[in-house]
Design a protein around this nucleic acid. Sequence first.
DNA 1: GGCCTGTTTTGATGGATGTCTATGCAGTCT
DNA 2: AGACTGCATAGACATCCATCAAAACAGGCC
Lengths: 118, 118
Amino acid sequence: MVREPLGEEAAAELARMFKALSDPVRLRLLSLIASYEGGEACVCDLTGPFDVSQPTISHHLKVLREAGLVGSERRGTWVYYWVLPAALAKLSALLQAGAVPAGAVPAGAGAVPAEAGA
Amino acid sequence: MVREPLGEEAAAELARMFKALSDPVRLRLLSLIASYEGGEACVCDLTGPFDVSQPTISHHLKVLREAGLVGSERRGTWVYYWVLPAALAKLSALLQAGAVPAGAVPAGAGAVPAEAGA
DNA sequence: GGCCTGTTTTGATGGATGTCTATGCAGTCT
DNA sequence: AGACTGCATAGACATCCATCAAAACAGGCC
């Protein structure tokens, strides 16, 4: 993020993922899923804690799934959701890079600012 | 994030920050600012690389500022913007936590299927 | 088969958002 | 002072989004 100014395509893809995180209900859903034992939860576990209707929860889960942040699978009657760690790690790394701005990099970190030209 | 399901208030605040990141132009603005030498850039440096009008850039910068992601200051003729590392670090840490879910994943059971569904 | 529960999809609606043009405000320079 | 540049604000408009009620779909059970 600091090394080069983030091209249009990359920004568009990342923006889609961040947009999926830009709703309080979806954030809580994600953390709720992640905090469940085994790292997965069925929809029936997720509808309770919220004030919104069950179809709305289903909609939010779809948004998270299409953003590549969670995976889902049907097992018999119930549908289970789990977090996809790689996606979160990707976003985390991006923000981490932005949190260590150019020029403030101590020796060894590798990100020499010098010329951010490209 | 994994430890506890993220309360309503915390989720609302975080969602506001993520929402600020949910636009491609704002993401590129942020990375552009971060990649500038000294970690700051004036608006005149930021309007060029985009296809949108200057007022639109100004609007996006305002959104980033109100989300607490960047700071700004007027110096004579120009206004400078810089990234607020603490904010990005906060979000990064949250996602990092979600990316390393429940270390107590039982053997076999929780092993995230990674590509199972969708 | 028929019903019942769990989940998704559809259609509608009020509100938020990104973008523009036009205008206003703040400093600088002659 | 007046004019000119850099940036922000105001208003307008089209689009997107979160939400709900209703209906459709899927699987299990009698």
